[in-house]
């Protein structure tokens, strides 16, 4: 098992290298540079060239790449071009945990809604609640994130005033447990918005998996052994039904971090998604490249975690 994990981590190196080349190549292939939107077009071309020299933008591409990757492996992604030359790493680390917490809240909502409803639907197929769940599933998949987010802000935040419409915390004067709950309060709407589509997916998966498992021979064996319905469901069915869900969660891990771009923007939530979007609009390439690489790492780690959990839940899968 440990050998397997180490081997998988070693495979990360060439994959990340390939990813970094692609990220760098795309950034370089894009037309224009950070100055093309910032500078007065009438400025002396010599000043413009001086600034480019200063940033090393006139060196050959391989040299630029080597410099960038060399610094990147040391955790230095250079300085932001737009945000007053602040180090990219500072900008990212200030927002990193916001995004991670938001992802966790989204995942939490997904699981506590999807698993119970999925299991209920499977045990009572074609019941009213099952149809309701199916309907919710289609709606959840069909509504775009941003639209649901706007609806949530309009009705739940503005009309009803139950939740704050934006930000992460009410003000700088709250602290301690109060701050903790305040932050949670701020994360509920964006969390639900972010988790909506996957809630629908998980629910459908759960429903079909549980129906599948309930019809299997070993469930009949468990009943023939005199196990009560509770034990049959919680011990014998759930663990088997969760195996495919774990695969799904592995992918989700990367998507939750990278996919929060739109949700964070709508709720004006200072996370990596907002930073990424601003950087793209402002052609702040050091940030774009750093974030793309980080999102890539998340997806790789998510898949590795899924594989590890997989072998924990299912003894038939052993990596040695």
């Amino acid at each position: 098992m440990y050998k397997y994990i180490i081997r998988r981590l070693l495979i990360f190196i060439p994959m990340l290298f390939a990813l970094s080349v692609i990220v760098f190549g795309l950034a370089k292939a894009a037309p224009g540079d950070p100055f093309s939107t910032m500078l007065d077009p009438t400025i002396d071309p010599e000043v413009y060239e001086d600034r480019r020299d200063e940033l090393g933008l006139n060196d050959s591409i391989p040299v630029q790449y080597a410099r960038w990757i060399g610094n990147a492996v040391q955790g230095d992604f250079g300085e932001s071009i737009v945000y007053n030359s602040r180090p990219v790493m500072d900008l990212i680390s200030a927002r990193f945990w916001n995004t991670v917490y938001l992802g966790l809240v989204a995942l939490f909502f997904t699981l506590i809604v999807a698993i119970p409803i999925g299991v209920y639907s499977a045990r009572n197929p074609y019941s009213i609640l099952d149809y309701f769940g199916t309907g919710f599933g289609f709606v959840g998949l069909a509504i775009p994130n941003f639209f649901f987010g706007l609806l949530a802000i309009y009705f739940l935040a503005i009309k009803l005033g139950w939740f704050p419409p934006q930000g992460t915390v009410s003000g700088s004067d709250v602290s301690g447990m109060k701050e903790f709950f305040d932050r949670i309060h701020h994360m509920i709407l964006p969390g639900i918005t972010l988790g909506l589509a996957s809630t629908a997916t998980y629910m459908r998966y759960m429903r079909s998996e549980v129906i599948d498992v309930l019809g299997s021979d070993y469930i009949r064996t468990a009943k023939a052994k005199g196990m009560t319905d509770r034990v049959v469901l919680y011990k014998h069915t759930l663990r088997n039904a969760l195996i495919p869900i774990i695969t799904l969660m592995g992918f989700e891990f990367g998507v939750l971090v990278g996919g929060a771009v739109i949700t964070e923007r709508i709720f004006n939530y200072p996370g990596l998604g907002t930073l990424f979007l601003d950087a793209v609009i402002n052609r702040d390439y050091p940030i774009v490249m750093a974030l793309t690489l980080i999102f890539g790492v998340f997806i790789l780690v998510g898949n590795l975690l899924a594989d590890i959990f997989y072998s924990v839940v299912d003894p038939r899968i052993r990596y040695d």
Binding site: R220, T221, G226, R239
Partner: peptide, 18 residues
């Protein structure tokens, strides 16, 4: 499982794999 017990046809799938 106590007073009466049963054995099934398919041993490959009759036991819980996990």
């Amino acid at each position: 499982g106590n007073d009466m017990a049963m054995i099934f046809q398919e041993p490959m799938t009759a036991l819980n794999p996990v």
